[in-house]
Design a protein around this nucleic acid. Structure first.
Lengths: 222, 222
DNA sequence: AACTTAACTGACCGATGGTCAATTATATAG
DNA sequence: CTATATAATTGACCATCGGTCAGTTAAGTT
């Protein structure tokens, strides 16, 4: 068995630092799942991580830098799960539904993805931004390969589909990020509007359209 | 000529209150155009509007309530402009390009639309939310009518297209909301990634796909 | 045991959105 | 014209936020 890494009071070695970072990020994900992005406070996170606030800023430059790391982690985790569901041949519909279901099952990925460009990326260092973009590129490629097999498309078509559906996924779930309209205090016309954007049917419908369009655009690569 | 509405010190009549609200909202739009959403401060807005901070809260319940009103105003304004560009017969491509160009020309609409569900709607009163959704319904219908003529589609198809392209627009312009990467300090692979999501080609390409798909889905209404 | 290094702490800072008792402009009544 | 009532306006004030940094001290080195 491997040597267990422990931290007495101070994280001195690189391994110990990685462990401490990991502890903070795990606490952050749990806390984030409870309160969401806006109510997430660094002081609270410090308490829940068992360290002082200043310590968190030794491991993450800013609040957004922390969220960027959390995003990378959840993206990578989801992509492995999604790929695990892809068999050697599936329909566009099943593909789209699986993509949607697995992404929504992860409570962290979409809330961060939706805030990525216009909030998170605006307060991180450029090297973090580059690292994050490279994680994205890498995961797109990773997913494109089994996508190519499952949907019987070229590699280029598969990449196009993964990128496009990734963007579409964000919009399809926007309505789920709206306020919880628990009781039915909304008038019928407004309820119908919200229902018409109900994210899964909306996403699947348009995903199929796009997949089939790309499939027929056989000779479109310059 | 109509009687000019003026406010000496206090807005007493309904007309005067409407005028004061208008003055604040106009100042807000200018200020918003200068600093964007996150840096927008209510104290600064008060100074620029020539009233005290407390006064603003007499006219808008919260910061988000103010932004919701600004969103409604910019949505309505844009829809009239967009409709003005629709002639009795245009191609899918021109339609998509016009929609994109007019929406981007408005500096207020997209930055607010992108934050609508997951930020703005979470801190407004339910009656404001309902009013806002109804403005949306109304503008979709208003746009759908000339869309139906221009693209030679049924009314139902036109509504479907307007709603879907609206969502697509948000996703496509997400990349424009990222940090300004002025100088070319980004490595090539990352630059290529960002370029591949360049918003106008991305939007137009997928908009055409969706329009043409909907066009061929002739008998899909349940 | 003495010294050095650097991980860690938390009081502190400026700024934020939002509140409300006090103020006072203005319409109305006498 | 004056007195009174009403309500629009104000800005000091509050809790809380993300972020900082001088000081503390755990732990490796000599």
């Amino acid at each position: 068995m491997s040597t267990a890494v422990v931290i007495n009071h101070r994280a001195r070695s690189a391994e110990q630092k990685a462990l401490r970072r990991h502890v903070v990020i795990e606490a952050a994900e749990t806390y984030f799942g409870e309160v969401g992005y806006e109510a997430f406070s660094m002081a609270q996170l410090a308490k829940r991580s068992g360290v002082a606030k200043g310590t968190i800023y030794l491991y993450f430059k800013t609040r957004e830098d922390l969220f960027l790391s959390l995003y990378e982690q959840s993206l990578t985790r989801w992509s492995h799960i999604f790929i695990g569901y892809l068999s050697k041949s599936i329909s566009s519909e099943v593909y789209a539904e699986t993509l949607y279901d697995t992404a929504l099952a992860d409570g962290t990925l979409l809330p961060l993805l939706i805030r990525l460009e216009h909030i998170i990326e605006h307060n991180v260092e450029i090297h973090s931004l580059i690292r994050s973009k490279r994680v994205f590129i890498s995961e797109v490629k990773r997913i494109a390969e089994p996508t190519s097999t499952s949907l019987k498309l070229s590699q280029a078509q598969a990449i196009e589909i993964v990128k496009t559906l990734g963007v579409l996924l964000i919009t399809a779930t926007r309505v789920d990020q709206g306020p919880a309209l628990d009781n039915e205090e909304l008038p019928n016309d407004v309820q119908e509007l919200i229902a018409s954007f109900s994210s899964k049917p909306f996403f699947v419908k348009n995903a199929i359209r796009i997949i089939e369009c790309i499939r027929t655009e056989a000779t479109s690569n310059a």
